[in-house]
Structure formats: C-alpha cells, structure tokens
Amino acid sequence: MPEFTLWDIVRNLLLAARWTVALSFIAFLGGTVFGLLLLLMRLSGRRVLERLVGIYVQLFQGTPLLMQLFLLYFGLAVMGVNTSAWLAACVALTLYASAYLTEIWRGAVAAIPRGQWEASASLALSFGQQFRHIILPQALRIAVAPTVGFLVQVVKGTALASVIGFVELTKAGGMIANVTYEPMLTYACVAAMYFVLCFPISLYARALERKLA
C-alpha cells in the first residue's frame, strides 16, 4: 500500500482548487452580467417585467442551491442539451449569483433619493442616460461592499458542484479521503483552503463597508 504524505494531499487539493477558483469567477462574472440585465428590467417601470424579476429572485433565494443544481443538471438533459457537470454547475451558479446580485443592487438603487431621478429627468436625460450618469455612480458606492461580500457566498456555493460530480476542491477532498483513509486531515485541509480563499475577501468587504459608511 502506498504511503501518502501531507504534501501529497495538499498538492492534489491545490490542483483541484484551481477549478473552484475558475467556477467562482465564471459564476461571478456571469452573475454580474445577467444580474445587471435583470436590474434594468426591474427598473424599467414595466409592471410585468418587475413582477417577473421579483418571482425569479424569490425562486432562487427561496430554494436550496443544491436543488437548483440538480434541476439544471437533469433539466438541460431533458431539453436535449448534451450536458456535463461543468456546464450545469456554471449555469446554475450564474443564475443563482444573478438573483442575489440583482437584489443587492436594487437595494442600492432604491437608496438613491427619488429627487435624483426627477432632477435628471427634468434635464431631459433618457432613462439610459439617467441610470448611467446619475444613478449608477452613486449606487455603485453603496453596492460595492455587499457585492464583494457576496463573492464569498459564491466561492462557498461552488462546493455544491461536487455533488453532481464536478471535481473541484470538495470533490477532490472526498476522493483523497477515500484513498488515504485520512478524512479528518483531508477535510481540514479542504476547509483551510476555502478559508484562505474566502477570509481575505471577507476582510476586504468589511474594510470597504467601514470606509464607505
């Protein structure tokens, strides 16, 4: 039977951690783009669109991410898409992130006094111009700390992709634990790596919060 050193465990976990980082980036970027789209829909003033986005947010915030992953994993297959764990995880985490981000940003926009919209409207700016030049710069200041804070949720959320078989940090940890018969050490290493990824982001979010408050 081969002997495994601590370095063997850590090295293989580090290799897998690349996928956790990649998945986090894709989900956060995708969520940002899609979330911004949803935000514009919600601010458009059309009742139907506002309602739809509201339901979308409720749906994603009121159900477990794990079930969303399963649903997409099997749903994409039913719809005839040749699906993989990687694709399903990317899509599910993007949708999940977009729902939370759009809600955070809606709060930030709502915090801008009504008069700002009215003043810019009275200067004959279009909706797009009002949003882009007047509202966005102010809302961004409010939104940045919670947005960075949410990134931690995304990184932690990627751990669930292990359940549908995507080999990232958590899944690799499970496989290594099975081979080495050292689950405690392995999962402690896994947890430590998530901590190293997440804690600086948490600290940064907190610092931003303090600076902008």
Binding site: Y187, F195, C198
Partner: peptide, 22 residues
C-alpha cells in the same frame, strides 16, 4: 470566522467523515 468562511458541506463532511477518526 472559520465557520463563515468555509462551505457548510465541508463542515458537514468533516463532522461525519472526519470525527470518527477521533
């Protein structure tokens, strides 16, 4: 800080698979 910066699934696995070692 440890709990808030690690995924719940890892905490669960640590407890369920890791603690039997002790």
């Amino acid at each position: 800080e440890i709990i808030r910066n690690t995924p719940f699934i890892v905490q669960l696995f640590f407890i369920f698979f890791g603690l039997p070692e002790l």
